[in-house]
Design a protein around this nucleic acid. Structure first.
Lengths: 249, 249
DNA sequence: CGCAAGCTTGAATGCCTTCAACCCCAGTGG
DNA sequence: CCACTGGGGTTGAAGGCATTCAAGCTTGCG
């Protein structure tokens, strides 16, 4: 396991944790939370660091507290596809699996709330509220993966970019408890290369299509890593998705 | 909900059911099985029939007993992407969700072992072994979806076809409890169009690449819906995947 | 037979990739 | 102070792979 940047000494309590009501612990009562509180430990990674390599032994599971991490898969010749984008409150790791199936990378500074895997597995059996929340989150992730399949299988480069930005809009709005419409400013925590790995494109194509969306007024650059969406409706329209019953997560 | 072809009157008992040890009921003890036995009802569909349309109310969940079903998603202009391929023992439906998220179609004659959704949700709370098996199956499906993302994002048409055939090999071998290597004959329950929807290609491209694989001796036609794989190893090689630690499910 | 569904094959087009050059900027060290 | 360097990004030109459009084949069936 890679070395941590620094090991924080439980700077937070679950009560005041920013992901308390959305993470795997969301439905816990105060007693259950006490147990988690005793088990948890934080690990921090700086942008660019690898959290774990595919195939390595993985003796913990975790919730993303802050920052963004990616799961990636590779073919033998180096072709890379992102298969997971973990934002705050998302769950990392698989109970009852010894080794990591995917390479996990911090794309921004990252804080994880970790649990050793074995005790967590025991907790899953004893604490139905955690197990049922994990099932719910896994089903949500499966839905997200299926939206992603549609994106990779059938959407044009332009639609893919617009879809990714729309997803980030939606997640950001959900996190803040705001409606995902009108004018929004979002943080873009991915490089062109990471976006390309997400979208099944090359970084050149991503760059070109970002330029095109900018020229069409769908997006406006706002500093180094921020983007203004003047009209979320127009962005969603450009994504090719149905405007109403939009995708989940 | 579409009309059933015929409503079978519980022709089977769970004891002798062919998916008994792989479906959502796999870990149930005899008492739990009795409860399921009383709840279950079978529904049959013939090849080509739609089981449910995306957006329709869905008041049941089910296990696939026999046959193959697909989940598909569409964009407004009709572009279609398959997002799920359900084989015997796979689970259909989502607890705590009122409406179907995807259109479900029987691509062969299909038999489902159904449970009304509400009682099943109650059972999930009361029967941890069912809940934990459903979590396990959902995590497996998520892994499969992630393999699929790699396929759609980064593989060539030829590699995609080979990957699909390799997946069918693996599933078939797992069902029969045999090793997935050497020479194998598999049933191909999909039309060229359904394969194209799975693979994010057009049916013409699928046809061309099937021809190419045949000319290269990777596959051999064997009757209308069967294919002989002379060497699974060569097929996997053509799929672009790592030969050892192959993908899951 | 005639028709429709499923499949194959050919030719032309187009979207994305590949390869390459160049820009910007922050960090670094002579 | 400023040249140097490397990471991240943009843009151009050429090429390739899959798509699109089209024609024709095979098979099962009313």
């Amino acid at each position: 396991m890679p070395t941590d940047v620094k090991l924080q000494v439980k700077p937070f309590t679950c009560d005041t944790c920013s992901i308390r009501h959305r993470a795997v612990c969301a439905h816990c009562d105060s007693h259950e939370l006490t147990i988690l509180e005793q088990m948890k430990f934080y690990r921090n990674f700086s942008a660019g660091q690898t959290v774990i390599w595919a195939g390595d032994e993985m003796d913990f599971v975790a919730s993303v507290v802050e920052g963004v991490a990616t799961l990636t898969q590779q073919l033998e010749d180096g072709r890379t596809q992102m298969v997971g984008l973990l934002l705050p409150s998302d769950f990392l790791g698989r109970p009852n699996r010894e080794t990591a199936s995917y390479t996990v990378t911090a794309t921004t500074d990252l804080m994880l709330c970790c649990f050793r895997r074995k005790p967590f597995e025991k907790l899953l059996i004893e604490t139905p509220r955690i197990a049922s929340r994990l099932l719910e989150m896994t089903l949500d992730e499966l839905d997200a993966a299926r939206e992603w399949l549609l994106l990779l299988g059938r959407k044009s480069a332009r639609e893919r970019i617009a879809s990714l930005l729309a997803i980030l809009c939606r997640r950001d709005a959900a996190r803040l408890g705001e409606p995902a419409d009108g004018r929004r400013t979002i943080n873009l925590p991915l490089t062109r290369e990471a976006m390309a790995d997400y979208l099944g494109l090359t970084l050149e194509t991503v760059s070109r299509q970002m330029t095109a969306l900018r020229k069409d007024g769908i997006i406006e650059p706002a500093g180094k890593r921020n983007i203004v969406i003047p009209s979320v409706a127009r962005l969603v329209e450009a994504s090719g998705d149905d405007v109403d019953g939009g995708p989940l997560i």
